[in-house]
Every structure is written in structure tokens, then in C-alpha cells.
Design a binder for these strands. Structure first.
Ligand code: FES
Ligand code: FES
Lengths: 131, 131
DNA sequence: AGATAATGATACCATAAATGTATCATTAGT
DNA sequence: ACTAATGATACATTTATGGTATCATTATCT
């Protein structure tokens, strides 16, 4: 089971790299080779981060991406949500599975609690703390 | 992302059901209908739990499964391991992805810590506490 | 102006994992 | 013998993951 999929992981690494470089513009080409990430895949990832406002894009020759003002405070939770959409550790507790006794079920309580714990941990890890 | 996949979830519910019934033998047929789980799927799941020694199987007419002596102390961690094999929240930290600076990386430290937390939580939830 | 080099947007593809089904053999009770 | 259960295992379907490819747009450089 994976809490952090590969695109999320690549995104985090790329963001750390951006943050380390300050406001410098970096092309996908350069970053892909320096991080050993497939270029088109990284490109898709950075475009998404741009759409979400975490990166700023510069088109045209000599262009690339750089971190936006929100980058340093961006949390791992933010990134996970962007690439993995939801955040439910189990279908069971999210209601996707019909289950008798969804209310007052001890299993559900435990899983919900764990989910909260994980989410809170991820919310407390910011990009600026990783560089 | 899912920490607990459906087979794991079904397994937990089935184990709770078994535990609640004490040493009574229950057939897959009965359990599948009472838990609303596809019968052949549940069967495969229970067979696996039997192989792992958590359930005892009775073949032949009137047969079925019942909890073994180890059932009450079985933890969610045990069940997750049985159905999902490993337990690594991220490929990155498990070494499946080549990454410069695998040593002394702050991200890795955080993820490893979170992994420990999750594992410990799961290890502290026993079937007997869920019935 | 034109060549070049970057991103924007989006569609496509390949593989793996998750979620089940089906089948035949074996065993036990009636 | 007949029936109803599991044992073992192969097969099928669907969804998620990981990645490519392409064409349009924009900016720079000569
Ligand atoms: S809500 Fe279904 S077993 Fe807990
Ligand atoms: S080990 Fe690769 S970024 Fe941490």
C-alpha cells in the first residue's frame, strides 16, 4: 500500500529543489536530468503544481518554473491532496462500502482516528522545512 | 490512496464476526450473506486467513471456518501484512526509487517516522478489542 | 521576420494492482 | 452414492498508476 504515490513524491522533490534555488527559473529539462525523473512526466507534474498556484511559469525560450510565494508554506498534505484527490485510508470508513453498523463501530473509530493523525502529521510538514 | 484495501477490510470484518461467535463454525455461504460480501471473494480471503493460522477450517458437509486460538490477539497490522505484503508508505523511502541524498534527507526522516507511527497504531488494535 | 526553445492543454498508452470469478479436486457428513 | 462444504489455483475484469506524444501558444534571440 502506498500513502505517497510516485507523482506526489516527484512533486515534493521538485518543490524542494525549487525552494532551494530561491526565485531562480528552472526548466523542466534541467530539473528532470538533475532529479533523474522522466522529463514528460515531470512536466505534467509541474504544470499541475502551476495550476494550483504553487509554482509560477515562464513561457517561451529561456522559460521554466519557479516557486511562487506560497511555496515555502506548502505542506505535504497539500501536495498529497493535489495528486491523490481524496484522503481516506479505507473505503470502509468513507462510506463507499455498505456496512451494517457504520455508526458506533469500533473499527471505524480507530481508522478515523488514525486518518486524523496521519493528516495532521502531513499538515505539519512544510516545504521550507525540507530544504 | 488506500491504506486498507478491500480484501483487508473484508478480512477484518470477517474476523470480528468469527470472534463474536466464539468457537462456532460458520460457512462462507452464511458469512457472505450476512456481511454482504461476494461469496467467492470472501472464500479466497478466508482460505488465506486459514493458511496463516488465524482461522481453523472444517471440510465436508456442515463445515466452514472458526476462529483459532490466535484470533483474539491478532492485530490489524497482522491482517494488513497478510493481504498487502509490505508496509511502505512511499517507494521513495524504501529504496525503489533512485534518489540522491537518500542518507540524511529530511523528507525521508519524516516519512519513516510517520510509517512507524502508523505501524504502531495498527499493532495496538486487536480483533478482540473490536467485537 | 523567422528559428528556436520553452510551457499549456490534452489525449493517448502500457503496466500493475485491486477486485473479483470459475473450476476441479478433496473431504466429510447423511 | 449424494450432497455440501473447503483446498488449490487459474482466469477475468476493472481501476489506478506511471508515463508518452502531440499540437498549440508564447517568449527570446539572431
Ligand atoms: S462500520 Fe462496518 S465493521 Fe465498522
Ligand atoms: S531521499 Fe530523496 S529527497 Fe529524500
Amino acid at each position: 500500500m502506498k500513502l505517497i504515490t510516485r507523482d506526489t513524491d516527484y512533486a515534493i522533490r521538485a518543490l524542494c529543489c525549487m525552494a532551494a534555488k530561491g526565485g531562480e527559473v528552472i526548466s523542466v529539462k534541467d530539473m528532470a536530468s538533475s532529479l533523474s525523473i522522466p522529463r514528460p512526466f515531470l512536466r505534467k507534474i509541474l504544470q499541475k503544481l502551476h495550476k494550483e498556484g504553487i509554482l509560477t511559469a515562464m513561457k517561451g525560450k529561456g522559460g521554466g518554473f519557479k516557486g511562487s510565494s506560497s511555496l515555502p508554506e506548502t505542506t505535504l498534505f497539500n501536495v498529497v491532496m493535489i495528486f491523490q484527490g481524496d484522503f481516506s485510508l479505507s473505503d470502509h470508513t468513507s462510506g463507499k462500502i455498505a456496512c451494517p453498523g457504520m455508526n458506533s463501530c469500533k473499527l471505524k473509530i480507530h481508522i478515523d482516528g488514525l486518518e486524523q493523525t496521519v493528516a495532521n502529521r502531513l499538515k505539519n510538514i512544510r516545504i521550507k522545512e525540507l530544504v
